[in-house]
Simulated scan of single mutants.
Amino acid sequence: MSSHSPLDNDPTAQDVNDDAPYKRIVNTFMKRRTHMNKKAEHALNHPEFARYLVNNGTGDGDLSGITDLRALFADTPNGSDAPLTLEIGFGLGDSFIEMAQAEPARNFVGIEVHEPGIGKCAYMADQHGLTNVKIINGDAIKLLQQLPENHIDRIQLYFPDPWQKKRHHKRRFVSPERMKIVTRALKSGGWFHTATDWEHYAFWMVEVLDDFEGLSNHAGRGNFTPRPDFRPMTKFEKRGIERGHGVWDLIYTKD
Rank of each mutant, 00 (worst) to 15 (best):
L130G: 05
L144H: 04
V54G: 03
L44M: 09
N27W: 10
D210Q: 09
M179H: 04
E112F: 00
H168P: 05
I118D: 00
Y52P: 02
V16H: 14
N55E: 08
N132G: 07
E237W: 04
M99E: 05
F192G: 01
F224T: 03
R70T: 06
H35F: 12
T194G: 10
N217V: 07
N137Q: 14
W191C: 08
L144F: 06
G57F: 01
I155S: 04
I111H: 01
A13H: 11
Y52V: 06
K187D: 05
A71W: 00
T234R: 04
P11T: 12
T58Y: 06
K120N: 14
A13M: 12
E213T: 14
G190I: 01
D94E: 15
M30Q: 14
F29V: 05
V113Y: 01
G93D: 04
M99P: 01
I136H: 04
R239S: 15
K180V: 07
D75T: 13
G240Y: 02
D81K: 14
T131I: 00
I136Q: 00
E115P: 00
Q164R: 15
W198K: 03
N45G: 13
W163N: 04
K23L: 12
N137F: 03
S188W: 00
W198F: 13
G110K: 03
F29K: 00
A105I: 01
P116Q: 09
L84K: 02
L92C: 07
K31S: 13
P160D: 08
G61M: 06
R32V: 15
V16G: 12
L147W: 05
I97D: 01
G91R: 02
L215W: 03
G59Y: 09
E115S: 11
D126W: 04
R178K: 15
N56E: 14
D139M: 05
M99H: 03
N45D: 11
H4N: 14
P47W: 04
T225A: 12
G59I: 10
H218V: 11
R227P: 04
M1Q: 09
T12Q: 12
Q156F: 08
A185Y: 03
R32K: 15
P11V: 11
F212T: 06
G214I: 06
R33Q: 14
V182S: 01
L209W: 02
F192M: 08
K166D: 10
H193Y: 07
F49R: 07
K170F: 07
D255I: 10
P6C: 11
D18V: 13
K238Q: 15
R106G: 02
A202Q: 04
P21C: 12
D161Q: 08
E149A: 15
H151N: 09
G91V: 03
G246L: 08
N17Q: 12
D161A: 09
Y52E: 03
D255Q: 13
P47D: 14
L147V: 05
D229N: 13
D161G: 06
A125D: 01
M99T: 10
G89P: 03
S95Q: 11
M30G: 13
L7K: 05
L53Y: 02
A219S: 15
N107L: 06
T58H: 06
I136L: 06
L215Y: 02
W204I: 07
D8N: 13
P47I: 10
E237G: 05
T12I: 11
K39F: 09
D126M: 10
D19H: 13
N9V: 08
